[in-house]
Design a protein around this nucleic acid. Sequence first.
DNA 1: ATTTAGCACTCTTCTTTTGCGAGTGCTAAA
DNA 2: TTTAGCACTCGCAAAAGAAGAGTGCTAAAT
Lengths: 364, 364
Amino acid sequence: MSFPDRGLSERKKQILKAIVDAHIEGGGPVGSKYILQNQHLTCSSATIRNEMAELEEMGYLEQPHASAGRVPSELGYRFYVDSLLEHYAMTTAEIAQINNLLKAKMGELDQILLAASNLASSLTNYTGIAIKPRFRSVSISKFELIFLSADHYILVAVTSTGAVKSKHLRGKTDVTPTALSKLAASFNRHLVGLSADRITLPIIMRIEEEMGEDAGIVGSAIKTVYGLLSEMDEGEMRVSGIDRLLQYPECSDVGQLQELLGTLEKKEDILDLVSRTESNGINVVIGSESEVKVMNNSALVFKPILQDGKTVGAIGIIGPRRMDYAKVLATLEGLSGNIANLMQANNQLNGGFSDGGNEKDGNA
Amino acid sequence: MSFPDRGLSERKKQILKAIVDAHIEGGGPVGSKYILQNQHLTCSSATIRNEMAELEEMGYLEQPHASAGRVPSELGYRFYVDSLLEHYAMTTAEIAQINNLLKAKMGELDQILLAASNLASSLTNYTGIAIKPRFRSVSISKFELIFLSADHYILVAVTSTGAVKSKHLRGKTDVTPTALSKLAASFNRHLVGLSADRITLPIIMRIEEEMGEDAGIVGSAIKTVYGLLSEMDEGEMRVSGIDRLLQYPECSDVGQLQELLGTLEKKEDILDLVSRTESNGINVVIGSESEVKVMNNSALVFKPILQDGKTVGAIGIIGPRRMDYAKVLATLEGLSGNIANLMQANNQLNGGFSDGGNEKDGNA
DNA sequence: ATTTAGCACTCTTCTTTTGCGAGTGCTAAA
DNA sequence: TTTAGCACTCGCAAAAGAAGAGTGCTAAAT
C-alpha cells in the first residue's frame, strides 16, 4: 500500500509537503514563490517551478487552471498521509478536555461513542461520526423474561457484545411467572450463542417440548428473539457537527455539499466501508480511493474501537480532502485510547456514574 | 390567538392568499401583475397595488426592496395558516405508502417515530424530525435485576412511559441471585412511581434496612436508578432528510443555513419548544414567533403523538417559512393517525412483528 | 369615493468590460 | 544543474452598462 520513496528526491518531498501543508492551511493553490519564502530552501523559485512541474507529471500535484499554483492531488494526499505526516502532539489541555468530557458522559457504549464523536468534532472542527458496525454474527448470551401482567411481559436479552435489548410482548394466552421463568431457562439452554441464521426448527420444537402445556408463548417469543438479532446486525451511525461542514469554502459549492449530506444521511455506504475494514489502526480514506461513493473532495478518517479484541464500534471524522490530518489523527488516537480506558473502568466499577469512581462506602 | 377578520376585506384576503400561494410556489417576491393574471379579479393591477400597499401597512406583507414585489411577512404567514389555508387531501397513493412503510418498520416507539419522520420528510420534501420530549416526571413502574456472574448483574427498569432501560452493574462485593431478587422486590415496593427528585434518604435507608446484610449493593444500584431517571428526562431528537434543506433557494445563503443546521444539531431549543407545548393538535411555529431561537426564515410544524392520553413523542417538519403548509399539515395529520393505529395494534398483537398473528383480548 | 390608466422612477440582476496580479513556462546565461 | 529574466495566460474583482420588473403617484373616469 505504501509508495516507494525512491523517485522522490528529498527536495521533492520537502516541496510536496510544503504544498500540502500550505494548501491545508490556506485552501487555495500554492505557488512557487510562496514556498520559497516559507521554507528555507537553497534554491530559487525557478527551480521549484521545475520540481513542481515534475511532481505534477508524476501525479502528485494538479493545476486547477493554467496559471494558478499547484494543488495536491488525491495521490499527493495519500503520499502525504503515508509518508510525510508529522505527528501532532495533543496539548495537555486537549487531553484533559477529552478526559473530563468523556467521564461525564460515561455510560453505555452507544453513549460513549456518541460523546466521543461529538468531542472529536469539536476538537478538530470537522464533522464527527460514531459508528456501531454491522456484526456478521451477534448472538445472545443471556435471556430473561419479566412478568408484567397476565398477558404482558418483557423479553430482555444480553447480547454477545454486551448490549442489552428488550421488547414488550403480549402472549395470546395468559402467561404466568412460572411459565416465564421456565421459558427463560429453556432459552438460556438452547439459544445462547446462536446467531439469527442458526435458530432452526428442531431447536424451536425442542423448546416447545420442554414447555409442555405452556408452549403457546414460545412462537412469538422466538420471533422476537429473531427480530432482535437481525436488528443488531443492522449497524448504526450518528453524525455530529454537520454545521461545521459549512465552514470550509469547498462546501459552498451547493451541489457537492448536498451529495455529501446525502451520503451522511443514507449512512449505508459509510457503514459498509467501516464494517468491512479489517485494520485496527486508524484508516484514512481519501476522496474516491475507495470503491465506496464518498464525496469526491472529502476524506474520511476513522478508528475502530476494540473491546476484548473485538471491534465494537468506531469513531471518525469527515472533512474536506485538505483536512488537517495531523491533528485529526492525533485526536482520534487520543480519543480511542481514552475510550478503551473508560470501558475498562466502566466494567470494573459500577453501572456508569462518574461519582469519583470510589466504591468504598457503597451508599449515597 | 386568531386575528379579527374585520379589517380585511374579502378582496384583501384573496390577494393575500394569492401572494402567499405564489410565494410558496415560486419563492420570489410577487407583483401586482402576476396576481391579476392568475387570480380572476374584477379589478386592475393598480387597484391591487393599492390593496397591497395597505396590506403592507397592516403588516401582512413586506417589500424586500423598493421596487420588488411583495413577500408575506411572518404575520402574513400566520394569518394564512390560521384563516386562509385550504385543506389538502392526501392522495390514496400517499396514504397507502404511509401504511405500508410504517407497518414494515413497526416496533418500538422510537423506531416508529424515526420511520415516521423519515416518511414525513420524503413525502413533503422537507426535513423531518422525530422527538421524544422531556418528561417533567418519569417514574419507574417495574424493576428487575438479572444475575450474570458473581460480581456482575444488570438492572432493568420499565418506565411509566413503557420504555425499558437497562444498565450493567458491578457490585463491589459479590452478589447472589437471592440477594438480587430480594433487592428487586424491595425496589418494586419502595421506588415504583417515584420521579428522580422524590428518591430521598429515608427511602434509601428503608431499603438498606430490608436488605440486611446484603445492603452493600444498594448504593450503586440506587445511583443507577437515579441516573436512569435523569437520563429519561433528557428527551431526544432525530433529524432526517437534512439534505433536503439545500433544495430551497433561501438556504443557498450559507450563513442562514449554518444557523439552521446548528439549531438542528443542538436540538435544545427545539426540544424545549416541543416539550413545553400543551396543544395536542398540530402546531405551526413560524420564524421568530416563539421566543425560542429557531432560524428566522424557517418554520417548524409538529404534532404530538399521544398514547393513552399522554404525549409520548412528536413528529415534525422543518422547512423554509414559505413551505407548503397545506401539504405538510395533511401529511403530519395522516401520519399521526397511522401511528396511533399502529401503536394500538402493536399493543394488541405481540412484541412487534407484523405476522398477522391475530389476538382477541387487549387492554391498554 | 373608488377605480383605472399612464408614466416616471427606482432598484435589482445579469452581462460585459476592463484592469490587475499572480504564477507559469521558456530561454539563455551562469 | 541552477538561476535570472521576461512574455504570456488566466482567473478574479471591481466597474459599467443594459434590461426588466414593479412600484408610487397623479390625473382622469366611473
